[in-house]
Amino acid sequence: MIEVKDVYFTYPNNVEALKGVSLNIRKGDFVAIMGQNGAGKTTLVKHFNGLLKPTKGTVTVNGVDTREESVAKLSRGIGFVFQNPDNQLFCETVEEEVAFALRNFGFEDKIIQKRVEWAINLLGLAKHRQSSPFMLSGGERKRVALASVLAWNPDVVILDEPTIGQDYQQKEKLRQFIVQLNAQGKTVVVVTHDVEFVAECNPRVVLMAQGEIVVDGDAKHVLTNAKLVTEASIVPPQISQIFMGLTDLGLPFDIIDVYEARDILLDFLGGDL
């Protein structure tokens, strides 16, 4: 679906943000791109919808080279939800905001109406439909931004740092929503440095450091690998930290989930009693 081949990217101020990145995202994948701030995560995903074009190498989306297609065309298939909803909200009502992209893409009025309705209900914004997006709380604004992208039903949804500034409950809601989207067959790409969030989602993890991919594998293996995690300067999830200290008792160390941890500990104790 999205194929990144040996991509290099240098910003106009000569910062080399990507140094030979290759990555393949298949339909229905759930990928978390992780790493420290400045590791090149956002730069990489901005290549997926053509906001950035590789300095060297190629990015193809559904077989089309992103260099030959406008951002608007690519965005039909790839929805990008930016980190800060305030960078995109500008309409007088939530409804207008959600309809904006649909109008840009030239949908018919009837379909626009239907889609807006659907997206607003999907994100539980029905009672705010006539409110000004600026009057809503931070979490609600985030949901409006999300609705305004999901409205045109893109095949791939990219979320840039969705958990920043969100409290625990909001994160939990968001996590359930993302997992549900993915279960319905949508390809989801999440850019984040929130380890605990990823540990609970259990997606495929692409770990980046200094413009390169350090490792690409499932969350359980990547996040519990002390060496890789240090290399990418992230902190392992708390449960795996605990188990890293218990390895000399013969316990496995690749545990990230609380309940899995409990079961293993109970097993261990039960076996001995």
């Binding site: 906001l51 406008s70 608007a72 965005s75 039909r76 929805g79 893409f105």
Partner: peptide, 27 residues
């Protein structure tokens, strides 16, 4: 960043006649 965010929502800044192009900058 804002320009990127709106382009990702299908906004084409260079489209349309002169007036339309100015209106494109409202978002």
């Amino acid at each position: 960043t804002i320009m990127d965010a709106q382009k990702a929502r299908g906004l084409e800044l260079e489209r349309g006649n002169f007036i339309k192009r100015i209106r494109n900058y409202i978002p």
